[in-house]
């Protein structure tokens, strides 16, 4: 299984980050929440593994499909 890039499902801002680098996660876990169109949009782990890196911080604007971090399997 390849490493998984955490991608923004929608354009918006990073509202809340709910994971840290090095943390073990399961596929489908909510890693962070974006604020978009005044809604809280969860960002899920693309694969099970460990958070290798997070490339955004709370408050950052992101475009759809932007890489927010990487999960290594």
């Amino acid at each position: 299984m390849a490493n998984g890039e955490i991608l923004a499902p929608v354009s918006g801002s990073v509202w809340k980050i709910e994971c840290t680098e090095g943390q073990a996660v399961s596929e489908g876990d909510t890693l962070m929440i974006l604020e978009s169109m005044k809604m809280e949009i969860p960002v899920e782990a693309p694969v099970s593994g460990t958070i290798a890196s997070l490339t955004v911080k709370e408050g950052d604007p992101v475009e759809e499909d932007a890489v927010l971090g990487v999960v290594t399997t």
Partner: peptide, 8 residues
């Protein structure tokens, strides 16, 4: 569908 693009 509010689960995608908040339904936008």
């Amino acid at each position: 569908n509010p689960m995608v693009y908040a339904g936008a």
